[in-house]
Design a protein around this nucleic acid. Structure first.
Lengths: 332, 332
DNA sequence: GAAATATTTGTTAACGGTTTCAGTTTAAGT
DNA sequence: ACTTAAACTGAAACCGTTAACAAATATTTC
């Protein structure tokens, strides 16, 4: 393995000069730099990052932490996140992936090991970890889950606005009897989406009927159950908004089971645009949650933060997108 | 940040002794070791991995390379792989994730940066990369895609056996007119699965009818098209094996479009057990490809390799599992 | 053309660990 | 008690890089 000292030897200069030349230090004369760069290229020099890290006190790695890798993390989530991050993370950073729930010692998460951290948070259980991060002083961003702490850089989707837009669309198609299957109690996303739902109904002067508000927990089962109870109502809704696609799929299965035709008798809107929402029957109209975009923006902001550590933290929203497929029909 | 020298100072010994004590070197007296360990714990000592790396010439990182992260990689794939790896990778290794197609310079993949590499290969395009790896001498395993090179540690699913088993099951249910939608031409997995298909038919003395062999490319569309052509046959099959679940979903949609009832008129078997195969209508009977197990075994083998570099490379197969759901019915 | 200044390069010491080799205890043997 | 071996500890060098400071060389300036 060749080092800057090897280069120095063949170039007839000191290794310091080589270091400077290769790092674009302006003190070096152009000709010397060119010569050194040529030699380095010829010799196939690759810097030793361990040595660099040691002296620079930089790790050249960014940590990506999911709430859990083992359970619950929807698959497309992980891919989309990694995808988005890779798009903007330049090549001399490497990205390590972790599950928060499998960290044994928070102490191992130190500024020395991570230049920066991305937390793709899906649960309030992450708060302890986030708090620890704050203590260490590692620059970090929390993605996906809206936080109340204004001192933390936070990038999330504008769920409320997105849901409102989707419901506006449904109402525009003539729906008046509209229900919601809510997400897991206590989650910020649950209340945000519910708010968006109500925003739309209220702005169209539609009544908020209690029977049409059903509980769920973001799981497929809960969507099934909630839909079953909605279908049992004496005056069932014509449009149901499911707070995520998983529950929408459960709801869909409930309709099959009850012989309810979609979208003829009942229309359905989901949230997330998971991969398979396009392969359900009928394909699901849903609200795309731009995980890749969130990750991308978050990474960009994080890197900004690394470069100037005293920039003010902000809460950023990225727009959702209404994906119109075939699970919503006009009311005749 | 506290270092071994700090510990040495409070313990009243040299930093050498501390290093030894903390690394389990047997030369150190038990009492000294205990004392040092206690102090280290109290002081919340965390070793500086950059320094360790520098002197030990170890990076403490394992690289996980997918064919691509941006495109094509099915989502569950990524999660399952990471999941499996995390289960067996001990905590002082960190796992970095990469897409082979976005590596700009192979030169950056050096033994210094990676103690070992896991290649989750999904395409022949990875061969150039694998070849480069071989050159560098980094210990590595190729997962998921069967290689012909016996010099490479390779962990794959036993597709052939798995498909045979699934078809045996279908034949046991009375099916005699059985078709296959093949995978992408040229892929090893395509021929393996086709072989398993034929194995079963032949062992049951069923004829191999050419019309029942249709081409696909592992994409949803191709499954749709292939199924359309099968349904147009004058004597259509009663059971169709789709070489992956994506194509099975395409096939399913073709059936909807043609008004063919599943599994009443036609039975369907997929391959992979992707997340959504349980939410199709009817839920898909399929062959689970144990990506997590493959990753787990691969990681274990890789670590073994790191510890004794001269162990012989092997090709390992892990068993698939038939997941019986409701897309296959008995012939009446 | 010498002094002053600007530009370029080199010397040396870190960074935080491990390891070789030498030195000091402690225990054993006589 | 006295040598001798065994057990333990320490001093110093090293891993490959950057950086503070010193030194050398080139360029102005008068």
């Amino acid at each position: 393995m060749i080092t800057i000292k090897d280069i120095a030897r063949v170039a007839g200069v000191s290794h310091t000069t080589v270091s400077r030349a290769l790092n674009g230090n302006p003190l070096i004369k152009k000709e010397t730099r060119d010569r050194i760069e040529r030699i380095a290229a010829e010799l196939n020099y690759i810097p030793n990052y361990s040595a660099k890290s040691l002296v620079m006190k930089k790790s050249y790695t960014i940590g990506l932490f999911f709430s859990s890798i083992d359970q619950g993390t929807s698959a497309s989530f992980l891919v989309d996140a990694i995808k988005g991050i890779h798009q903007v993370l330049d090549e001399n950073y490497s990205l390590t992936v972790h599950g928060i729930d499998s960290i044994r010692h928070y102490d191992a998460i130190t500024p020395r090991r991570f230049d920066g951290v991305l937390v793709m948070s899906q649960s309030e259980a992450d708060n302890a970890f986030i708090y620890h991060l704050k203590q260490t002083g590692i620059p970090f961003v929390v993605l996906n889950r809206q936080l109340d702490d204004p001192g933390i850089l936070n990038v999330v989707a504008n769920d409320r606005e997105g849901v409102r837009e989707a419901l506006d669309y449904g109402i525009g198609l003539g729906h008046r009897k509209i229900a919601i299957i809510e997400g897991k109690a206590g989650f910020k996303s649950t209340t945000e989406r519910k708010q968006g739902f109500m925003d739309s109904l209220i702005s169209h002067r539609l009544p908020l009927v209690p029977d049409y508000f059903t509980a769920g927990d973001y799981g497929v089962e809960s969507g099934y159950n909630a839909m079953m109870s909605l279908l049992s109502l004496s005056d069932p809704p014509t449009l149901v908004f499911c707070s995520n696609d998983d529950m929408a799929i459960g709801a869909l299965n409930a309709c099959y089971a009850r012989g309810v035709a979609l979208p003829g008798q009942l229309s359905l809107i989901g949230f997330d645009d998971i991969l398979f929402s396009q392969y359900t029957y009928p394909p699901l109209t849903t609200i795309r949650k731009p995980i890749a975009d969130i990750s991308k923006l978050g990474t960009t902001k994080l890197i900004e933060r690394l470069e100037q550590p005293d920039s003010a933290p902000e809460q950023l929203f990225v727009q959702t997108e209404l994906i119109v497929r075939q699970s919503v029909a006009a009311v005749t």
